[in-house]
Design a protein around this nucleic acid. Structure first.
Lengths: 231, 231
DNA sequence: GTAACTCTAATTGTTGACAAGTTTTCGCCG
DNA sequence: CGGCGAAAACTTGTCAACAATTAGAGTTAC
């Protein structure tokens, strides 16, 4: 069973394949550091190597994939510094998107966001961690879309995917990535069109997520085995 | 005479060629809408079509180039909506970079920024518009580097290049893109490590630049010739 | 038992030829 | 003379074969 199953259809577009790979990353089905062999991708998506190589360049440009010359493509694994930079970048961007969203939001959009939170809670309840993570990412992206700036939304898409990798790398098994309570507080502020409060809430929210992680670089040099085992 | 003239050297790296094309855009040597034929680029940079095609994908991903299927690559020409989005994105990002920069800046970095302003003024005085524009862009990027967030810096690199296109499209011939006075005010605030003031100055500065432009879409539909000539 | 070395297999990177599509040119007709 | 249409020339997109590099297995020596 292939990932795509395009039912005898035409070849998938670049955009579609990129989206599917990014989605797999967000659902934690592709972990940081995973190898992406060209042949396997060609096989899975039933496409040519030319197309896959082009797609890998795009993913590398987005920071989701790292290309090692002559060794191939791997899902990126952000180090501690990059992880912190991604969160700082998200705070900068989402502060802006959420203020715009507060100014523009309508009943329909609010209902949509509430539905997202409900669906996320349901996924969490039934233990579908991948879907839960995907939905919380979706929440932030929907917010950016409501804000109406496609340039910022595109930046945020990349950052959300990279955040999934960071949570996979530095998060504990139990901790939730985004709390529903935070998202609800955000929705409340948006409902009252209170941009400043929404921005403050978002800033707090992102700090919380980052704070719940244990962002430290693994020691890469000559490891002191004795130290690790307290000998 | 080729653009590169690598003096019998090894083939240029992807990164180098991308940088050179972006630099040409920033210096307004490549205007919005210009066609980039693969053959011409291969010729100029003395490289293979494979490499050029890969580079065009990267530039497209960065928003500097637009790819029209079966028609080739063109320097992007942002419409009015995109232009405004780019400025809003810059305000979001540069607010953050400038606050970080204020917290981290030292004498060396300050001197460097002052030198940049002087060089820009000199270029302006001798009428080297390209160099002047390049240097003002450089100023903003240097600031981001001082801020120390490479993720935001990379985003800003793309936005600065796109801003050059926007200024080329919507700016009047005479207007300067970035005023030296603004940059000096920024340096002053940074020198006093006053992040909040630096952020406010930057916000003002970016609004000024945008305000000096006449960002309107050319009417693309059935043009009313009579209206245009006031008949 | 381990470390270093070699050889094989597999994967990535590049090249050149070919197919598909688009622009331009040229000729024809109104 | 201007507009229309067909054909040629050119440009882009794709593919398959080939070259280059690396990972891994197996072997040997210590």
């Amino acid at each position: 069973m292939s990932i795509t199953e395009d039912e005898l259809g035409q070849p998938l577009s670049d955009a579609t394949i990129v989206e599917r790979i990014v989605a797999a990353v967000m659902e934690q089905k592709l972990a940081a550091g995973a190898k992406l062999p060209e042949a396997a991708l060609c096989d899975a998506f039933e496409c040519s190597r030319t197309q896959i190589r082009r797609i890998l360049v795009v993913l590398a440009e987005r920071g989701v994939v790292t290309l090692h010359p002559n060794r191939g493509a791997f899902i990126a694994s952000p180090d501690a510094g990059e992880a912190r930079e991604v969160f700082e970048a998200r705070r900068a961007i989402e502060r802006s998107t959420v203020i715009s969203a507060a100014a523009q939001i309508d009943k329909t959009a609010l209902a949509e966001l509430r539905a997202n939170v409900r669906a996320g809670a349901a996924a969490e309840a039934r233990g579908d961690r991948g879907e839960s993570i995907r939905l919380t990412g979706q929440f932030h992206l929907r917010l950016a879309e409501i804000g109406g700036n496609s340039v910022l939304t595109k930046f945020l898409e990349d950052l959300v995917a990279r955040t999934s990798l960071i949570i996979g790398l530095y998060g504990s098994r139990s901790a939730r990535s985004c709390s529903d309570a935070d998202h609800e507080a955000l929705i409340d502020a948006l409902g009252e069109r209170d941009g400043a409060r929404a921005a403050a809430t978002m800033d707090h929210h992102l700090h919380d997520i980052e704070g719940a992680l244990d962002i430290r670089d693994a020691v890469s040099g000559p490891v002191d085995i004795r130290r690790i085992f307290d000998l």
